[in-house]
């Protein structure tokens, strides 16, 4: 699957390998599946025996707005919200949202970001500019960046809607949990019919990232 086309499906910029990932912020656009990704992470941590807390936002923000969810694990977890500047990892399903929630990661934190761009209405109709060089900015500020063509991976796996799970595949390469634990958590949240495509997207992203990071 790892082809040598002009735009690789996954690129990794490493300054420092993240040690442990406990607090994760998931940034997405309403409807992209950010909440589902958060719930899969929570189930994974739960199954691994951790205390887990998540925070979601429902309602009006889900109508195409910017959606921010949090998931935390630990022996004891108090706040369901990761304090700003303290997240170990940011999982961004869209470029601009990755940039928006960048201040949530701690110095040296990891960013796993989709290369997908969804211009908000303020850009498509409001005359504002979609930021350029998002990847470079993330690279400068994050200790570790995985830049993922999540749509491309999901499309190849069979459905663009699996992009969120593809990103989890990339994130999984930075964490110690075994692939089987991820499969179990992903399967717990998907109807049987959607599992093969999602697990394939997960596998491809995980393997490509591992190949670049070094397992």
């Amino acid at each position: 699957m790892a082809d040598a086309s002009v735009q690789p499906l996954i690129e990794v910029s490493v300054r420092r390998r993240p040690e442990k990932i406990h607090d994760i912020v998931v940034a997405s656009v309403g409807g992209q599946g950010g909440i589902l990704a958060t719930r899969i992470l929570a189930t994974l941590f739960l199954n691994l025996g951790w205390q887990v807390k998540t925070s979601e936002v429902h309602g009006m923000a889900q109508r195409g707005g910017s959606v921010e969810t949090h998931v935390r694990r630990g022996r004891v977890v108090y706040s369901p919200l990761v304090p700003r500047g303290e997240a170990d990892a940011l999982l961004a399903l869209e470029q601009l949202e990755g940039l928006r929630y960048l201040p949530w990661i701690r110095p040296g934190g990891a960013v796993v970001c989709s290369s997908e761009r969804i211009p908000p209405v303020t850009v498509t109709l409001g005359g504002q500019h979609y930021p350029e060089h998002v990847r470079e900015t993330l690279e400068q500020r994050a200790g570790f960046l995985v830049w993922v063509d999540a749509l491309g991976i999901a499309r190849e796996a069979g459905n663009v809607r699996a992009a969120n799970v593809a990103l989890l595949g990339a994130l999984s390469a930075l964490m110690e949990a075994p692939a089987e634990a991820w499969h179990e958590a992903i399967s717990a949240h998907l109807p049987a019919g959607a599992r093969p495509v999602n697990l394939e997207a997960f596998r491809v992203a995980r393997e490509l990232t591992l190949a670049r990071v070094g397992g």
């Binding site: 707005g65 601009l96 940039l99 928006r100 850009v123 900015t137």
Partner: peptide
Amino acid sequence: PGEELPGRPP
């Protein structure tokens, strides 16, 4: 850089 980013209202 979040401060100058275009907003994404619902």
